[in-house]
Simulated scan of single mutants.
Amino acid sequence: MKFASEFRNPKAAQAVLARISEVADAIGATAENPVSIMEICGGHTHAIFRYGLDKLVHEGVEFIHGPGCPVCVLPMARVDECVEIAEREGVIFTTFGDAMRVPGTLKSLMQAKAGGADIRMVYSPLDALELARRNPEREVVFFGLGFETTTPSTALSIQQAAREGLKNFSVFCNHITVPEPIRALLQDPHMMLDGFIGPGHVSMVIGTHPYDFIAQEYSRPIVVAGFEPLDLLQSVLMVLEQIRDGRAQVENQYARVVPAQGNPVSLAAIADVYERRPSFEWRGLGEIDASGLRIRAKYAAFDAEEKFSVGYAAGPRHVPEPEGCSCGAVMTGRIKPTACAQFGRGCTPDTPLGALMVSSEGACAAYWQYRGARGAEAAE
């Protein structure tokens, strides 16, 4: 608890909550006409429910859960392609544990593993790199998944594999970027968002300037936030104060961790290894221009898409959502998880229809974990 307790101080939280109520009243926010603030990061969503912040803030403040869970926004076709690679003879397929139970069209990676595929959970792409060194007769594939937070470690691993001249290591690249889907949401005329709580971990890598367009082009405030209760409450207050003052700026509540210019070493590795895809499919959002990364030609030997002719190398493939599944609507903030007819019924952690129920950052998983199977009160 050292260095964390100060950000969980109840008296300090009460003081910030009182200020939130004052500002919310000043701008006329009510339960019938709330200020809608989207937290982009799935880690923020879970923190909000873990600490009950949605119940503590003024009734005129509504949290909208955004597409900030990289496992959740992965289209089902990409899960199918992971299974296809993993089930090939001689392949060791490695992945973060969060992706193991995400359902594909026919099966998840966990089910493929149970069926005999050599699929191993790792904590880092460096673990996959070590497996490739120890198993030179096998093809070791790492499932490169995540926002800008995890992209640098994958890039550094590819650079290391190139230096060593490893022939049996490759990455199935599904890395994606945060700013582009925010732009897509802001261009949606049905999305009524008054402000944003920006992702903390992503911003450690990219800094705060990639969000400038939110304020400059769309006149919405955004505050990059940490993950403790006081971080999030202070960020809500900062968004409300901008609205009260008629401002739209990028502010950095998490300055103790997030530098405005980002991490230059990480950004250099990303720029060296990756380039933008023309477009990439997001579950619930469809194809978004320049929102995905692919491995540059100079590192093509480590590109699993090219090596196995899957993914965009084989041509885009769309798989429709399972019947009755509302993952797309939940992920884009159009509805709350409990508004999905399958929540707690046809879709549970044991029998998931979509990734939001099984990912550690999924909104449905947060509702289930902290509000129970039905979570009826969370839908209010």
Rank of each mutant, 00 (worst) to 15 (best):
L230P: 02
E275S: 05
D54F: 12
F96I: 10
L166W: 10
Y299T: 08
V91E: 05
K307L: 13
A114N: 07
R277W: 00
T94D: 03
H44F: 01
G362R: 04
R371K: 12
N174I: 00
D289A: 15
Q160V: 11
Y299I: 09
S235T: 00
T332D: 07
F343Q: 08
Q249G: 00
I48K: 02
K167A: 14
G328I: 01
A86N: 03
E306C: 03
A301C: 01
H175E: 05
K307M: 07
F49N: 11
I20D: 01
I222L: 11
R138H: 11
T348E: 09
F280R: 01
T151S: 15
P264L: 13
L230A: 09
I295L: 11
I222R: 01
G346M: 07
T177H: 08
E32G: 15
H318R: 13
V171I: 15
T94G: 03
A268R: 14
G42S: 11
R138P: 04
E323A: 14
M191S: 14
D272V: 05
L56E: 14
G42L: 12
P352W: 07
V358C: 09
S360H: 06
V140Y: 09
A297S: 15
D303Y: 08
W282Y: 12
T30D: 05
A29D: 06
F3L: 14
A77Y: 03
A314Q: 10
D118A: 08
